[in-house]
Amino acid sequence: MTARRAVVVSGSGRYADPWHPFGETSAALAEIARELGWEAEVRPSEPASLLDLGGVDVVVVNSGGGDPDAPPAPDAAWAQAHAALGRFVSAGGGLLGVHTAANTFSDWPAWPSVLGGRWVRGESWHPERSLATFEAVPGTANHPLLAGIDPPVGLPALTDTPCITCFDERYSRLTLAAASEPVLRHELGEAYETCAWTLGRVVYDGLGHDARSYESAARRRFVANALQFVAAR
């Protein structure tokens, strides 16, 4: 049986930023794919990386929003690359967007509808990084994305609720498409904030700021589950 193939599109150039170590998080994502027995390749966020997706099962977008004071301007080469990724997803290719994927491709108007949501500049935000708990949205405890992820011990309020504990950012006030289905949330200021969702077989995973996030076994399991989920077409 031919191994699955994943391409991790790692933030660089116009889709890099000063805050996220895309090299180390993209390496962690590729490592998780390889642990599943997949072939995994990390590519820079350049047009050529999305124009050659022949034989690829899953594209993992781990890219950022670029310089917030100088958003990416329309570019013909990138327009072709965006269109190629859109066709890949429409044809049944798997898509996993990680962390800053909600804030990337701001020059592609269709990206929020492809991903199922977006980071809205001036509205979305996050507290300082910390050890945080991300819990299953009610009704999703048996979702394939949460397989093998256990409820915390000693917290009766979260009995039967799969949770991920890791050192990470808690993205908040993200805007979801109407058809997106929340899977993970965190509690902030006595309100719940969605930080992971599905849209059909597309998955957005709002965790993964830096390598410390991937030190959590539950976090890594969530990524592995997400890869298998989007590939199961």
Score class of each variant (00 low, 15 high):
Thr104Glu: 01
Thr104Trp: 00
Phe105Leu: 09
Ser106Val: 14
Ser106Asn: 08
Ser106Met: 12
Ser106Arg: 15
Ser106Tyr: 01
Ser106Gly: 14
Asp107His: 01
Asp107Phe: 05
Asp107Trp: 03
Trp108Arg: 05
Pro109Trp: 06
Pro109Ser: 07
Pro109Arg: 09
Pro109Val: 11
Ala110Met: 01
Trp111Val: 05
Pro112Ser: 04
Pro112Ala: 10
Ser113Trp: 02
Ser113Ala: 15
Leu115Met: 11
Leu115Thr: 08
Gly116Cys: 04
Gly117Asn: 07
Gly117His: 04
Trp119Gly: 07
Trp119Pro: 10
Val120Asp: 05
Val120Pro: 03
Arg121Tyr: 13
Arg121Gly: 12
Arg121Leu: 06
Arg121Lys: 14
Gly122Cys: 12
Gly122Arg: 08
Gly122Met: 09
Glu123Val: 14
Glu123Pro: 00
Ser124Gly: 06
Trp125Pro: 00
Trp125Phe: 15
Trp125Leu: 13
Pro127Lys: 06
Pro127Gly: 07
Arg129Ala: 15
Ser130Asn: 13
Ser130Trp: 00
Leu131Ala: 10
Leu131Gln: 14
Leu131Glu: 15
Thr133Asp: 08
Phe134Thr: 06
Phe134Ser: 09
Phe134His: 12
Glu135Asp: 09
Glu135Ser: 12
Glu135Gln: 13
Glu135His: 06
Glu135Tyr: 00
Ala136Gln: 03
Val137Arg: 12
Val137Tyr: 09
Pro138Ser: 10
Pro138Asp: 06
Pro138Trp: 07
Pro138Met: 09
Gly139Val: 10
Thr140Val: 11
Thr140Met: 15
Ala141Asp: 06
Ala141Glu: 11
Asn142Gly: 15
Asn142Val: 00
His143Ile: 09
Leu145Val: 05
Leu146Asn: 02
Leu146Cys: 02
Leu146Met: 02
Ala147Glu: 15
Ala147Gly: 07
Ala147Leu: 09
Ala147Trp: 02
Gly148Ser: 07
Gly148Ala: 08
Gly148Val: 02
Ile149Glu: 05
Ile149Ser: 04
Asp150Lys: 14
Asp150Met: 12
Asp150Arg: 15
Asp150Ile: 06
Pro151Asn: 06
Pro151Glu: 12
Pro151Asp: 09
Pro152Met: 04
Pro152Ser: 06
Val153Met: 09
Val153Ser: 12
Val153Leu: 14
Gly154Leu: 11
Gly154Trp: 09
Pro156Thr: 04
Asp160Ile: 00
Thr161Gln: 02
Thr161Gly: 01
Pro162Gln: 06
Cys163Met: 13
Cys163Glu: 08
Cys163Trp: 03
Ile164Ser: 03
Thr165Asn: 10
Thr165Pro: 04
Cys166Lys: 02
Cys166Pro: 00
Asp168Phe: 03
Asp168Ile: 04
Tyr171Glu: 05
Ser172Asp: 00
Ser172Asn: 00
Ser172Val: 00
Arg173Gln: 14
Arg173Pro: 01
Leu174Tyr: 05
Leu174Asn: 04
Leu174Glu: 07
Thr175Asp: 14
Thr175Arg: 15
Leu176His: 07
Leu176Asp: 05
Ala177Lys: 07
Ala177Thr: 06
Ala179Asp: 15
Ser180Glu: 03
Ser180Ala: 15
Ser180Phe: 05
Ser180Gln: 02
Glu181Pro: 01
Pro182Phe: 11
Val183Asn: 08
Val183Ser: 01
Val183Cys: 05
Leu184Pro: 03
Arg185Met: 15
Arg185Gly: 13
